[in-house]
Amino acid sequence: MTRLGMVIDLEKCVGCRACMVACKVENNTPESAFWMYVFRLEDGEYPESRVSFLPRPCQHCDNAPCVKVCPVGARYTRDHGIVVTDWDRCIGCRYCEVACPYGVNYFNYKKPKELQYLNWENPDVEVHSQGEVPPYKNPVLAGKFGPEQRKVAGGGHTKGVMEKCTFCVHRVDSGLDPACVVNCPVGALIFGDLEDPESPASRAIADKPAYRLLEERDTRPKVRYIGAPVSSTAREIERPKVRN
């Protein structure tokens, strides 16, 4: 059985946050929503300080607390293991968010157009970007996916529903890697089938010790990390000012 997962090589990550940008453009996410987020951390005091980076997509847990608590089955695990949100069924109770230990959920607190970086209804946007800027309602993201035919790619970011990283379900379903993976300049993000020993993801962790975040919480994530774990005393170098 296919189990899609991601390997994140912290020894390679340079903290450039290209993955965050790629994610925002690909998924057209609203302001202050970071489906992919990269912690830039420091530990210790100068001159004995150490800097580290920790990319944090949704962990796509095998034992996902968010899936368990969803009262209406809007959050679910697909056949290949991707955890998605059916934004057409979500009632906006935010239970998934409070149950998730990783803080990967983003709720749409406002009308979509108020939280987009550009006013997509302005015709100039399309003219000046020569059609490169995705439309406000990206038809691909609004589509139905998988054999279950449900709306799980975020769509037009409807007000009052929960969203999070989908592993770019719309790309994966057509055989592509997630946007963050293909945009990483140093190949720190590797995507593939964790059950297939020949997949790039499995090969990446074949001869290196890999671990998962917060293993003690028994969420069994499908995101594996290579490299030194982040120290428990590490702190963010700068706080993101993203409270819209």
């Binding site: 089955g73 809007a74 679910y76 449900r150």
Partner: peptide, 10 residues
């Protein structure tokens, strides 16, 4: 552990 879509539908 809910492992597929069937867990989300009655």
């Amino acid at each position: 552990a809910p492992f597929d879509e069937s867990f989300s539908n009655p």
